[in-house]
Design a protein around this nucleic acid. Structure first.
Lengths: 163, 163
DNA sequence: TAATTTATGTCAGCCATGTTGACATATTGC
DNA sequence: GCAATATGTCAACATGGCTGACATAAATTA
């Protein structure tokens, strides 16, 4: 049963690659993500927004002027999924659309002041949780966290931010 | 704007608590979780199961004999949300229910052989991703990852496994 | 014993978030 | 002029959550 995961990096057994250790990591991802998204969800609900709106607000805030297709690529969802979310954000004045100067087919998205204000509140909630965790860890632990998280991710450059 | 996050742990400025560093962490969580769940989703879809079924299979597999209310507490969802998911898992022979010996109101859940087989395949997919990441990291980095992930989580003992 | 609490199940209605497929429109580039 | 591109839209559907209300059986408590 899943013995393949007991394969060694070098020749000696590696405690980090045992089934219990790997199951622990699987659970850490589940619980950390669940709790990480729980708090913002409450604020979003007060605006009748969901996690999908949060993601749009976040990435438009990070990359003002991002096009619709760039946003779709980051989120890895279909345009039909994005459409109603974006529509309500524009209709309610959180996101603004501007026609491209060079390519007039494109819609460049930016946050309005109202959108920025909400983004900041959401960022504040989530960054407080991260900051609390980082304060409990030394620099080496933080570096390890970053390294492992990047390695778990398919494309470690993550969207366009390219951090 | 979110200046509170610039608060220091000691007296000197801490590079880990700057806005760029905290935004990086937020994005690491988003992308790592997205990619982590992407692969199992494809296998689950072939059974017409979703992520909710995966979670039930996972935690029943981890704690055979778990009761319905214990499962609800781990997942933090309502019984009305769990009901249809559990129903189809039982109906299609992945999960078995047994009346409690001591308390006959309780339903103790276990995986059938079929359920175990699916759980193993799902575990294999996810553990392979973790193992790949862990192999790229030294023991200190892995320890740092675990420490930060626990600190991000509300209840670091995570469910009943109590790792 | 009687009353209450607990564990579970179920029904109804609602909402958010995703999907595929098909088609429309405007614009760009060859 | 034509094909490709960027975006938008409609329809139908599936999943996975939620609240509220109510039902049943079993355990616990008064």
């Amino acid at each position: 049963m899943a013995d393949i995961n007991y394969l060694r990096h070098s020749e000696r057994p590696d405690a980090a690659l045992t089934e219990p250790a790997l199951r622990e990591a699987i659970e850490l991802l589940f619980f950390a993500y669940r709790d990480f998204t729980g708090e913002p969800d409450a604020l979003l609900a007060r605006h009748r927004f969901g996690r999908a709106h949060h993601r749009v607000i976040y990435f438009v805030g990070r990359q003002p002027g991002i096009t619709v297709s760039e946003l779709l690529a980051i989120l890895k969802i279909t345009k039909q999924s994005l459409a109603p979310v974006l529509k309500v954000l524009v209709a309610r004045g959180f996101v603004a659309q501007a026609m491209g100067a060079k390519d007039r087919r494109q819609r460049h998205l930016t946050l309005t002041e109202k959108g920025q204000a909400l983004e900041e509140r959401l960022y504040h909630i989530q960054s407080a949780r991260i900051a609390r965790a980082y304060r409990q860890a030394d620099p080496a632990a933080i570096a390890g966290f970053r390294r492992v998280m990047r390695a778990i991710t398919d494309d470690p450059q993550m969207g366009r931010g390219g951090r």
